[in-house]
Design a protein around this nucleic acid. Sequence first.
DNA 1: TTTTTTGCAAAACCTTTGCAGTTGG
DNA 2: CCAACTGCAAAGGTTTTGCAAAAAA
Lengths: 152, 152
Amino acid sequence: MPVTQRAPEETLKAVLAEVRARGYRMTPQRQLILETVYRSRGHLTAEAILKAVRKRFAGVNITTVYRNLEMLEEIGYVCHAHLGHTPNMYHPTERREHQHLVCRRCGAVEEIGVKPLIPMSKAVLNETGFEVDLTHFALLGTCRHCRESGAG
Amino acid sequence: MPVTQRAPEETLKAVLAEVRARGYRMTPQRQLILETVYRSRGHLTAEAILKAVRKRFAGVNITTVYRNLEMLEEIGYVCHAHLGHTPNMYHPTERREHQHLVCRRCGAVEEIGVKPLIPMSKAVLNETGFEVDLTHFALLGTCRHCRESGAG
DNA sequence: TTTTTTGCAAAACCTTTGCAGTTGG
DNA sequence: CCAACTGCAAAGGTTTTGCAAAAAA
């Protein structure tokens, strides 16, 4: 039951409803965590989510953030990615697959769709039998800005 | 000054010599750490390196392993990769670039050369200006064995 | 009321740092 | 000899766990 393509607010409402429908209770903490993750365009660390949530509900604890993210991953509404020498980054389960590009020099993260990656994933499948999932890890490199401004 | 293509033992000797030539001292710990990394075909955690080294020199400390790996990375003889929910994996600086394939189900790690990745890195460069470095991160997916034996 | 969820504190895990003592060159 | 290196112990940063109190249904 993958999340279907919807406008952000509609998706959020649907997710809240589905979480409840699965028998989980809807606490203010949980709702705010979900809202934060679903309204953010980018990728957030647990710490960033906590910070955002605390602006609206002061007493929330980092443990609660982790526990909710874990639960939301289990039921498929949230994913995390390993972007390098940083804490894990969390984001809503994507409606379209994408890959992360992380700049080795400035740390900027950009996303690309999987389209340019499909030929290579087919080649890898043919050569090795390994089926690449293009959504979880990052590709390291040098972003345009750093490439054009710096040497080497 | 990248490491050139040589037989493993010859590479090891050359690296030992070059480390010395750069003014670093050659302690038994350092030598054993280098030997362990260079003789292993795969990728090792700091803990695994420690274990291997201790078989031949009991008193070695994990701190020493980390410090030597850090030094060896600085001078370009060792690299590390983020392979997922595991500690960092260390390996000799590769004579040819490669990418890691990590199986989401069984955890097996395989390598592929960069050849099948070149078209995509060109596409990404054209589309976004981002220059992908194909050696540091892993691609997650499902290996042939798990794909053929399991469902979904 | 009953089960889930929370907050706090503490632990776990991997990695780094400070320091005093040891050792390679 | 003396700078580089090591081991130990302790700290750092991120994530997980145990447990009693609080809150949802």
